[in-house]
Design a protein around this nucleic acid. Structure first.
Lengths: 157, 157
DNA sequence: CATGAAAAGAACTCCTT
DNA sequence: AAGGAGTTCTTTTCATG
């Protein structure tokens, strides 16, 4: 993970389809070298995939909501997690330090779908309560922040 | 937005670097036709970009937190939004139907950075209160749900 | 690790239907 | 809106420093 790798990662984060040839020009190497570096970044788990960013409304997912989960004391978190994972509408799932120990970001086409989804989540064993907040608008999402050259050496080359 | 477009979008959402030639094979068209469709999807705002997914820890962003904002009654939301947008650590920003009318997802290298960030957000004019929750783990994030062939015809071709 | 060269494949443009 | 042909560029492999 040197300066060149960081530049490559920054470029791919904001323009994920940039060709190796183009990346090579930007960082002052040849295409095979860059490809080699990118392959290593993928193997080392630094780059975990590539995604086209889609406007949710355009694909009929006009409703976004955040669902907080309050578990009961006997909750089996492995099971809860598995059950949550099986619900495709849950795009993100965070385990939190708080009373609402999960927060889900969900997307659905219609309010009726959200209602159904809330019932499905609420019915999971170990879920005591849910609290849902509708998002009125997404100001921005998944904006990549530039990598600091910082003191974060994790031994990943 | 026909069935072929939906298939292309689904493929690019999960494998954003798939070549046009490969996409063409998957959907039974030629590469130029697929490229044409993808260009239109980009122009129509269906595809808004391409991003490499990065493991945050690998790039020194080991701490993720959610910050809720409670505005005061005189809050100018355009200004708040502008000030928030200028903070690079805020990766996502949702405007919510609730007392905490914004939720921010932030990533920082160290706790000290989070503390500084909370003060910075709290100091924005119109922000009455903030409430921060640390995420202990990200179970998953930005998992694309397959597009329904659904009744969502928005007139985008 | 990086490079250069060479072969294979993909992208892009134009033109036709 | 899709296919075909031709050109250019890119990817990929491999041998070399």
């Amino acid at each position: 993970m040197d300066e060149i790798d960081r530049t490559i990662v920054n470029l791919l984060r904001t323009a994920g389809r940039t060709s190796y040839a183009e990346l090579a020009r930007r960082v002052g190497l040849t295409a095979p070298s860059v490809q080699d570096r990118v392959t290593k970044l993928e193997k080392n788990g630094v780059i975990t995939g590539y995604q086209a960013a889609i406007d949710p409304e355009s694909i009929g997912l006009g409703i976004t909501a955040l669902i907080g989960i309050i578990p009961d004391s006997s909750a089996d978190h492995v099971r809860i997690c598995d059950r949550l994972r099986a619900i495709p509408q849950i795009e993100s799932c965070y385990f939190l330090a708080g009373v609402e120990c999960y927060q889900l970001k969900v997307r659905v086409p219609k309010m009726a779908d959200l209602e159904q989804l809330i019932h499905r989540v609420g019915a999971i064993d170990g879920v005591a309560q849910t609290r849902t907040t509708i998002t009125l608008s997404t100001k921005w999402e998944d904006r990549p922040q530039p990598i600091t050259t910082g003191e974060s050496e994790h031994g990943i080359d």
